[in-house]
């Protein structure tokens, strides 16, 4: 078994993909956006409820590979309780980490997404939910991985 493959499909990724905790529609969402990867068909919708600038609840719906769906579940977990500005900063760090493979140690559970960097064609799987989060916070309805 390739070590890199085992890293990409490490236990947290598989667990979040198979048993997501935040896969749901928030009917009362204050901000939402849909993200598409036009090449592979992956899709993620992010739902947020806000109290002022603070994210109270976050959830997602989507279809796609284990990496994109696990990333969305990890995202929903990570951004609850954050101010929008902090959520944006976190998103930028996650996207940078997924591209570079660096900085995983300081990212807690999100660090599992750093493995995507070893698979250049899979980086967009990991980052799609995060660009969609940013679109939702910007008031845009749609985002694209491209």
């Amino acid at each position: 078994m390739s070590a890199a493959l085992d890293t990409l499909y490490a236990a947290p990724i598989r667990e979040h993909a198979r048993n997501p905790r935040h896969r749901a529609r928030l009917e009362c969402a204050d901000a939402t956006a849909r993200g598409d990867n036009p090449l592979c068909g992956d899709r993620v919708e992010i739902f947020l409820t806000l109290d002022g600038a603070r994210i109270v609840q976050a959830s997602f719906l989507g279809r796609g590979c284990d990496v994109s769906q696990a990333s969305a579940d990890l995202l929903a977990e990570a951004v609850r309780g954050l101010d929008a500005a902090d959520a944006r900063a976190l998103s930028a760090r996650v996207r940078q980490m997924a591209r570079s493979g660096e900085g995983a140690d300081a990212m807690g559970a999100l660090g599992a997404l750093a493995a995507a960097a070893r698979f250049p064609s899979r980086v967009k799987c990991a980052t799609l939910p995060w660009v969609t989060l940013e679109a939702a916070l910007d008031g845009a309805r749609e985002a694209s991985s491209e």
Binding site: M1, S2, A4, L5, L8, Y9, L39, C40, G41, D42, G64, C65, D66, V67, S68, F119, S121, R122, C125
Partner: peptide, 19 residues
């Protein structure tokens, strides 16, 4: 998922298209 499958097959030296 096709994408995950493609990455797995690649680790076996097998190139397919996913998407």
């Amino acid at each position: 998922h096709p994408h995950d499958l493609s990455t797995f097959l690649d680790s076996r030296g097998i190139c397919i298209r996913a998407g």
